[in-house]
Simulated assay, not measured.
Amino acid sequence: MMKKQVVSHPDMPDPYGAYSTVVRAGDFIFVSGQAGIDPETGTKAGESFEAQARQAFKNLNSCLECSNSSMGDVVKVITWLGDANERAALNELFAEYFPDEPPARSTPIVDLPMGLLLSIEATAIAKS
């Protein structure tokens, strides 16, 4: 039977609600939406899309590394985009952070809280 394990680590961003940041189930890691929030200050990493997006990818990477996984192990991503005009910029960053064999991706356009412009949710393969 597959067991669920909540992953916690002092280097991971804290959740901003009643949910787990990372859950491992069997051979998969599930990372809750990571936004462009600086985990040290709890505030937006900046006002620009690029500043927030780079912080979101950094937060995602931190969650994966703390869960014994990596960006290269990501199989599916949902990028919640706050402004449809930022699609081209997101595609450029996506190619930078996932240069080889990028994961499957969905990109709904949504109204994110706190003036956030991006949130990244991911499913990755867990290493033994």
Rank of each mutant, 00 (worst) to 15 (best):
R54K: 14
Q55R: 15
Q55S: 03
Q55A: 11
A56G: 05
A56Q: 02
F57E: 00
K58W: 06
K58V: 02
N59G: 01
N59I: 02
N59C: 05
N59A: 00
N59W: 02
L60C: 04
N61G: 12
N61M: 00
N61W: 00
S62T: 14
C63W: 09
C63T: 12
L64P: 04
L64G: 01
E65Y: 04
C66E: 02
C66Q: 13
C66K: 09
C66V: 00
C66T: 01
S67V: 07
N68Q: 14
N68A: 14
S69F: 09
S69L: 05
S69R: 07
S69C: 09
S69T: 08
S70R: 05
S70V: 07
S70Y: 13
S70F: 13
S70N: 08
S70A: 15
M71W: 01
G72A: 06
G72W: 02
G72N: 06
D73K: 14
D73C: 09
V75F: 02
V75P: 01
K76H: 05
V77T: 07
I78V: 13
I78L: 04
I78C: 10
I78N: 13
T79Y: 12
W80E: 15
W80H: 11
W80N: 15
L81T: 03
G82R: 03
D83L: 09
A84M: 08
A84Y: 07
A84K: 11
A84L: 10
A84R: 00
A84Q: 15
N85G: 12
E86Q: 10
E86H: 04
E86M: 13
R87I: 11
R87F: 01
A89G: 04
L90H: 03
L90G: 01
L90K: 04
L90V: 02
L90F: 12
N91T: 02
N91V: 01
E92T: 12
E92A: 13
E92S: 11
L93K: 12
F94H: 15
A95I: 01
A95F: 01
A95M: 06
A95T: 06
A95P: 03
E96G: 11
E96A: 09
E96F: 15
E96I: 06
Y97H: 15
Y97E: 14
F98N: 08
P99A: 00
D100Q: 13
D100I: 04
E101S: 13
P102D: 08
P103N: 09
A104S: 14
R105W: 04
R105A: 09
R105L: 09
R105I: 15
S106L: 15
S106C: 04
S106W: 10
P108K: 04
I109S: 11
I109D: 10
I109V: 15
